[in-house]
Design a protein around this nucleic acid. Structure first.
Lengths: 144, 144
DNA sequence: TTTATTTCCGACAAAAATATCGACAATAAG
DNA sequence: CTTATTGTCGATATTTTTGTCGGAAATAAA
């Protein structure tokens, strides 16, 4: 479904989110500990998310990553996925046709339209705040 | 969503299906012409599908691939996908957790359960016959 | 039996995704 | 200003996926 990079990116964002709610910045080492992802690779993905404005970073001692709490409601999973994997999952033909639409559909087109739009809807309606709160309350987990 | 191998495999099965309905065997060259996939790679994927009993093959002159017409209704897309990509798409955690279930769910678990089960349902209820008929009638296309 | 045809199979090659490493730049504290 | 800390960046390595090649095996026709 998602690439490894995207899985790591989403989980890292969620973890940073939980700590940002407490007003704490997190270092990459703490992130990968709590997310179970390779450090250098995860750092690279986070840089990408920084460039795209989904997360903030600060270098030096007491530095790290953080997400302004007032942005966590408006950051949706679809934004993270789009930055890392692009939007081929919710656009793009399931059978790989360059063009595939209602006029000239691939054999699976009608079956996929519904599923993809539901996926898109789910990703677009799920906020980082919601996911971070799930971790905070212990209802959900990020690792294992 | 699917791997390239899986996309090629599904499209090849559909094309062979359309020709099998006319009682014709098809050679790999004809398949890749009508599906737009690399020949040697597609041949390898088809061998895999032969081994798994989803398609028949015959070597030598007048040989090629074919699917007994009376099997085309019972062959579902999910069978093709399972052989080539495994079932990680409809099972397996969306965030890559080794174990992820209602007791210990990842943050996206509840959102994904529904989408994955619908995907599974769609793939399990779509037969090769149905897809081949779509091509045959010109309602759908395999290439471009 | 010979020949032409076609799939099968294993080795290899290329490209993309995943992952690591080390040097560099920014920052805070003393 | 110096030092320690931490993210950034480019180069490189590893693994997986995608793709190619050539010969072996099977088959049908002559």
């Amino acid at each position: 479904m998602f690439s490894k990079a995207c899985e790591y990116g989403i989980k890292a964002m969620i973890y940073v989110g939980t700590q940002s709610l407490k007003g704490e910045r997190v270092k990459i080492g703490e992130i990968v500990e709590n997310v179970g992802s390779p450090e250098a690779f995860t750092a690279k993905i986070l840089s990408d998310l920084v460039k795209n404005g989904l997360i903030e970073s600060l270098k030096g001692p007491y530095g790290g990553f953080y997400i302004p709490s007032d942005q966590m409601e408006s950051i949706k999973v679809i934004h993270i996925v789009s930055v890392i994997d692009g939007d081929a999952i919710f656009s793009g033909c399931g059978l790989g046709l360059r063009e595939c639409n209602a006029q000239e559909p691939c054999p699976m087109h009608t079956k996929f339209v519904k599923i993809r739009s539901e996926l898109k809807q789910a990703l677009a309606s799920t906020s980082l705040l919601e996911l971070a709160n799930g971790i905070k309350s212990g209802k959900t987990i990020l690792v294992r």
